[in-house]
């Protein structure tokens, strides 16, 4: 791991007309770590990830990728840096199978402009196996027939297949049952173990305390603080979310950036 985080935001602001969605927000994500992003509705979580993904380019501040300032003007820029976002509504095609969804829009072709189905299926199997996704019996299954957890796994696997460095997961467990939430949380942990920087957005503090290494709290478009999971409590985070009480236990002094 390098000293500087893979992705760092410094003093980022974003307004929509009179509404200051983000003001002077600092945020970072490190390789091999799960950074949770929490906050009440309207705290600016979505705006923040959309800024990183290039959907809402920032007004002020800077984004550093591996320590170098970068400008992310559109989703393609983010993709080129290796930043992938898995949105809440997953964006999978029900009428296509797992392999077809994994390669949608980036299909492999052979010399005759033919789809290279064998290679795509093989790599899909490898990717799923690499992430220990064992619940999908065959990648030739239609996505319509998958459970919520399996769909989430496909969406995540698709995001990490392209040599991505930073994966942002928007509420990955929101609609899932207990067992499926388990599957997805395990998957999140595995992504970090493989050296990716994972950003996890969730309302469920229980989940966050289970998989995250650090927590960034947003409130009304400002960052309240950053907490190391090992050194904080759910109570403290709830207080930070609701009342914006900055951490008395901002334990290690300043955040590493």
């Amino acid at each position: 791991m390098t000293d500087s985080p893979i992705l760092a935001l410094r003093g980022v602001s974003k307004s929509f007309g009179q509404v200051h969605a983000l003001s002077q927000v600092d945020f970072h994500a490190d390789a091999g770590e799960v950074m949770a992003l929490v906050g009440d509705n309207g705290a600016g979580k979505s705006t923040l990830i959309k800024s990183i993904a290039g959907i809402h380019p920032i007004d002020e501040g800077e984004i550093l990728f591996e320590g170098r300032p970068v400008s992310i003007g559109g989703p393609k820029d983010a993709g080129r840096l290796g930043i992938e976002v898995v949105y809440q509504d997953l964006a999978l095609c029900d009428n296509l199978d797992v392999v077809q969804n994994m390669y949608l829009g980036r299909e492999l072709r052979d010399r005759l402009w033919r789809l290279d189905e064998a290679t795509m299926e093989q790599r899909t199997r490898e990717t799923l196996r690499g992430l220990s996704v064992t619940t999908i019996r065959t990648p030739r299954q239609l996505v319509a027939g998958l459970s919520g957890g399996q769909r989430q796994s496909v969406a995540v696997a698709r995001a990490v297949m392209w040599n991505s460095r930073v994966v942002i997961l928007d509420e990955p467990t929101a609609a899932l049952g207990v067992a499926q939430t388990r599957q997805v949380l395990d998957l999140v942990r595995r992504l970090a173990e493989q050296g990716l920087a994972v950003v996890l957005i969730s309302h469920n503090l229980h989940d966050i305390f289970e998989v995250a290494d650090r927590i960034t709290v947003l409130r009304l478009g400002r960052s309240v603080g950053e907490y190391a999971v090992a050194e904080t409590t759910q109570q403290e985070i709830v207080q930070a979310i609701t009342a914006g009480i900055p951490a008395a236990a901002r334990s290690n002094g300043e955040a590493p950036v």
Partner: peptide, 23 residues
């Protein structure tokens, strides 16, 4: 057997997903 055909099915199945996939 072609990417174009695959994209036709994708747009018919979920146009928004197709758009986000860069189609």
């Amino acid at each position: 057997r072609t990417a174009f055909g695959r994209h036709v099915y994708a747009v018919g199945g979920n146009a928004e997903a197709a758009r986000r996939s860069g189609i």
